[in-house]
Design a binder for these strands. Structure first.
Length: 204
DNA sequence: GAATCGATGATCT
DNA sequence: GATCATCGATTCA
């Protein structure tokens, strides 16, 4: 079992987004419970050259983290309602991030269902974490996760001294497809969304 | 099934 | 004051 390290994340966001497909994300939620899912949908966001990116208009208090070292989480609140989980990419000083959009549940499905407020008796697997907002809710993340290390060789682990996020490398190469990113209004036509087309746990 | 719409708060101009 | 990397409820079919 291999956990992804900082050198994996310190590359172009496009490459990291594609290579994350098939890897397994593990997270220890705020309630202390672990869940895990196979990454099946990602999007790449760049720096000054990407008008759809939060870093597209340069450094701001919010986007600053995207310019910093790779291998940490970037979490923000969207529409006042949903949290979105990203991993910072690129070399230090360059801005980039990968939005984790959808997972296939691997461990802790009941925990996910409870956090999501679903009927524990009859929920559909794809309602657990297909979509960035659902995924964050299912894994128990919020704004306090911003800056949490995800690269396995990063430390210190977290303010509490516990490791909260890890990504296991996939065991086999995954078939992938690229397409336009979802929910943005600028640079709409760039094929920076990556999916595992065989998964039934994609958003939309 | 598809289309539409409103919630709600952090962030930036 | 406007924008927004979303979702679920509602409506119509």
């Amino acid at each position: 079992m291999t956990f992804l390290a900082a050198d994996f994340f310190a590359r172009a966001a496009v490459d990291v987004a594609r290579d994350l497909l098939g890897a397994t994300l593990r997270a220890r939620g705020n309630d202390g419970l672990w869940t895990a899912g196979r990454i099946v949908e990602t999007e790449a966001y760049g720096g000054q050259d990407d008008p759809a990116s939060h870093a597209g208009r340069g450094r701001t208090p919010r986007s600053e983290i995207m310019f910093g070292p790779a291998g940490v989480a970037y979490v923000y609140l969207i529409y006042g309602v949903h949290h979105c989980l990203n991993f910072v990419t690129e070399a230090d000083g360059e801005a980039g991030a990968v939005l984790i959009r959808s997972l296939e549940p691997v461990d802790g499905q009941m925990v996910m269902a409870r956090r999501r407020g679903l009927d524990l008796g009859r929920y559909r697997r794809r309602d657990l974490c297909a979509g960035p907002g659902k995924l964050s809710q299912a894994m128990g993340l919020d704004l306090s996760w911003n800056g949490t290390p995800v690269a396995a060789d990063h430390g210190p682990e977290s303010p509490s001294g516990l490791r909260l996020l890890l990504v296991e490398a996939g065991s086999a190469a995954v078939d992938w497809q690229a397409g336009p990113r979802i929910g943005i209004s600028r640079a709409v036509d760039r094929p920076l969304r990556f999916v595992d087309p065989d998964s039934d746990c994609l958003s939309r």
